[in-house]
Write a protein that binds this DNA or RNA. Sequence first.
DNA 1: GCAAAAGTGTTAATCTTACACCCATGC
DNA 2: GCATGGGTGTAAGATTAACACTTTTGC
Lengths: 244, 244
Amino acid sequence: MTALHLKTAEFEKATHSDFFNIAVSVDCVIFGYEDKKLKVLLIKSDLEEFDGLWSLLGDLVRPNEDLEEAPYRVLLDRTGLKDVFLQQVQTFGSINRHPSGRVVTTAYYSLINIINHQPKSLENEVHWHSVKGLENLAFDHKLILDTCLKRLQEQIMEHPIVFNLLGEKFSLRQLQDLYEAILGIDLDRRNFRKRITLKGWLVDLNEMEEDVPHRPGKLYKLRNQLRKEFCLGEKKHLEAVVSN
Amino acid sequence: MTALHLKTAEFEKATHSDFFNIAVSVDCVIFGYEDKKLKVLLIKSDLEEFDGLWSLLGDLVRPNEDLEEAPYRVLLDRTGLKDVFLQQVQTFGSINRHPSGRVVTTAYYSLINIINHQPKSLENEVHWHSVKGLENLAFDHKLILDTCLKRLQEQIMEHPIVFNLLGEKFSLRQLQDLYEAILGIDLDRRNFRKRITLKGWLVDLNEMEEDVPHRPGKLYKLRNQLRKEFCLGEKKHLEAVVSN
DNA sequence: GCAAAAGTGTTAATCTTACACCCATGC
DNA sequence: GCATGGGTGTAAGATTAACACTTTTGC
């Protein structure tokens, strides 16, 4: 009985050809951190419709490319960085969100050390912008940025991911400044230090800051195993239950 | 200078026509609750490649349809239900995940009261299945189901969403059974009651269970305002900070 | 010695967990 | 009266939040 209703994949594709005309893109919210400010890497839009506006770094997904590969390619192309930290956040698919046609986009955020990508100013139209106060992005990119920022804020106390934004060695003060920049709120210094040290993420390097105009702080680094788990292009560990 | 590099959307579309040949689908993990078990609504796959396997309810996104509308349409078509609770979870886009061609799918989960949709057995090939022990779904639907279940588990203590799975009136025991079915663990009765009542989600109806073969329990309902917020097809409130 | 930031501990409040006994109803 | 599940409280432990003073360094 049911066999009469079965159809082959080939048949299905032929009868649904109207549907195979959507493009899928990825848009990357690439966060960096500099001067105690959370930044995002943006590019001047090359579409007439958005002349003068900034947009996220993104690209269409290629026919022979997994969706999850695409944001890594975009980051490699735009920043030269491999082994970046990337997280899928949400997919946006309003009919008219893109003037070129029907483009559904999947948003990812990434955390990179801004030192590793200081764009040469003449090289291209890519620049770092403070996240705070950004308005008037191209497409629906402001919405995408806000959504990714909210997700980032939800994640930073759960998982040791912010270390992607810092160099290997850092003081607790630098770390707190970073958390404050991401969360947009002030934190109590003593409570912050307690919370972070209780998590057991850090290793005391027995080194001190240098060249600071005040009492130098101790330097820490992320535990090697956590750096391997959370500071590469691995998303699986955010999904897994963290075994402390 | 840059004006020379600007292109119109029309031009962009023409030069990227190879990319506009992906289909986008939505797949709905429709959860129900019956006999103290979490269930999911599945349909017999109508593809030869997956003969005999069950799959999630899904459909291709139509050219004139927002991505976010599509799962509501799927639920209306398949269950006749409007105003359902739906949440986007994740988008899956491996190259070969669908035998008909390149289909990127966005997964949603939905919570419905199973009483409102008891499929007539001869009507179609749609049936409720226990989530526990399900294997061998068509496509990558097992992965999608697992991902949505995990998200559901993360959400139920944060937001009053499980009430979509129950009738209007329920006892605390029924609610606890439901939480246990979703989480897959046993909960302490006294602690559960404390946690739930502390959240202030419930209104004591001053009514009692009837026709139970033991001491009847008190009946409760979800506060009206929360029912409006969390038990319709509204996703915005899960994003917002819950003001207690 | 002064400015600037590092470093540190206690208390109160809240939340979480574990755990045991009596009560109301149907049969 | 017995079986079934309803209903309740407390103590210990963990977590969070608020809060101030002394120390070290560069200048």
